[in-house]
Amino acid sequence: MSAVIFIPARYASSRYPGKPLVELTGVNGEKKTLIQRAWEAAQGVSRIDRVYVLTDDDRIAEAATGFGADVLMTSSEARNGTERCAEGLAQLDTDPDVVVNLQGDAPLTPHWFVEALVSAMDGEVQMATPVLKCDRATLSNFVTDRREGRVGGTTAVMRSDHSALYFSKEVLPYVGDLSTPPEVWHHVGVYAYTPHALRAYAQWPEGPLERAEGLEQLRFLENGTPITCVPVEARGRVFWELNNPVDVARIEEVLSKEGIA
C-alpha cells in the first residue's frame, strides 16, 4: 500500500496568526518552528513514501525548504487542511493508495498513531482518524480550556463499531465531575483518505455543522460518508496540539519530559 503524508500549514490562522512559525524549545534548548517539529514527527512514520508540506504562504515555504522539506504550494482559497490536501493530491503524478493529513499543529503525534491509521485503510474504509481515550490530565485541560473560554482540543463520539457519530470542540459527553468522569475520547488531528474520498470532499459545499464547530471532518458525515475512528494508545506519551498561545508551554514541557531535542 502506497501512502503519502501531507502537512497543511497556513499563516493566517484566526485564533493564532503565524502559528506554523512559532518556535518551540526542545530538551537541549534548541528552538525549532512548529512546522519543522511536525515534519520531523512525520519523518518517523514507517511505510510512508513521501512527506510534503502544503502551504500558500511564502514565509512558511521558505522555512520548510530551509530544513529540507518537500513543499507543494496551494491556493489561498483552501478553507481547511482537507481542501489543501485535495489541492496537493492534484499535483502528484500518480495517486497513492492513501493520503494522510498530519496537522501542522500536532508535533507530538507519535508515529504509531499514524501507522495504525494507515493500517486501518483496508480497501473498505474511505476515511479514518485516530482517537485517544482521555487520561485525567488531558481531560482536565479540556475542561479548563472551555471554562476559561478557550477553544482547545476536539472530542469524538462513536458507535460500538468505532464509526463516528460526531466530533465537537465541546467536551462530549458532558463532564460534570472530574472525580468520576465519563469516558471521553480525544480526537487526534490526523486523517487518512482514499484519493476518491478526498476529491469528493473538495466538491461538497461547507455544511452548517462544519461551519458551527470549525471542524473540517464533519463535512464527510454531513454528506453521508462514514468516518472510521481508530483507537490508539498513548504508551505513556502525552498528546496535545498547539491550538492557543497557552499550549506552547504545555508542549515544551512534554518535549523536555520526553527528551525531544
Rank of each mutant, 00 (worst) to 15 (best):
R15W: 10
N243V: 11
P245F: 03
L215Q: 10
T65L: 02
R37H: 01
A90V: 08
G224I: 04
P181Y: 08
L209K: 15
Q43M: 10
A41G: 08
G68Q: 13
A120R: 14
E87R: 01
A202I: 08
E206H: 03
I251C: 06
T180C: 14
V190G: 00
G153A: 14
H111I: 01
P205T: 10
V51N: 05
W204K: 12
E124S: 12
L255W: 01
C85A: 12
A90M: 06
V53D: 08
A38S: 15
P20Y: 01
V188D: 02
R237E: 10
V27H: 11
R15I: 08
L139A: 05
G176S: 09
P195N: 06
G44W: 01
R146K: 14
Y174I: 13
D56R: 06
T144G: 14
V22T: 13
M73P: 03
G66V: 04
A61N: 01
T225G: 05
S179Y: 03
L209N: 13
E206D: 04
R146S: 06
G224H: 00
R250M: 11
R136K: 14
E210L: 03
N28M: 12
V151T: 14
P17D: 00
A86V: 03
S119Q: 07
A9H: 08
G259N: 11
V22S: 12
E258C: 08
